[in-house]
């Protein structure tokens, strides 16, 4: 077992059987896979969703995927810098949510619809 440390803290095995313990390499691989899949889901959602609020929600999904990849790679190097980057991602996500939602409310007031197709031809409102 020299290659791997069990990822659960030392107080856990009392509750969980040790055979359920996972190797670090497997956890990191699974996290990277989930992160890649989530990012793709967010991308597909951003392209296919026509509701403007949900389009921005899909960008939040991509932020989540990036945060997961950061923490997985941080775990790989046993470096907490990855977690610090996630704090910054969280900041940007919060700022983006505030601004994007303000914009969406503004656009909704103009056209009375959340459909992004309503803005496919930009010109002054009649």
């Amino acid at each position: 077992m020299s290659h791997f440390t069990t990822i659960l803290p030392t107080s856990f095995p009392a509750i969980l059987p040790t055979t359920l313990a996972v190797t670090d390499a497997q956890t990191i691989n699974a996290a990277l896979l989930v992160s890649a899949l989530l990012f793709t889901c967010g991308l597909i959602g951003f392209l296919t969703r026509r509701n403007m609020i949900l389009m921005f929600l899909c960008t939040e999904l991509m932020f989540q995927a990036a945060a997961l990849a950061m923490i997985a790679f941080g775990r790989m190097h046993h470096d907490v810098s990855g977690q610090v980057f996630v704090i910054f991602i969280l900041t940007i996500a919060a700022a983006e949510a505030a601004l994007a939602l303000g914009l969406v409310v503004l656009l909704y007031r103009r056209r009375e619809t959340l459909d992004s197709e309503a803005w496919s031809e930009l010109h002054e409102s009649a």
């Binding site: 996290a31 989930v34 296919t48 929600l57």
Partner: peptide, 29 residues
């Protein structure tokens, strides 16, 4: 899996959390 590592049960928790996250994401979009 690295050669020389004893075969244990499949990693349960990452797979459960991963499937939960992906199911939620697909349902969301």
């Amino acid at each position: 899996t690295v050669t020389g590592e004893e075969a244990g049960l499949p990693p349960v928790f990452p797979v459960i959390f991963g499937f939960l996250a992906l199911a939620g994401a697909v349902r969301m979009i």
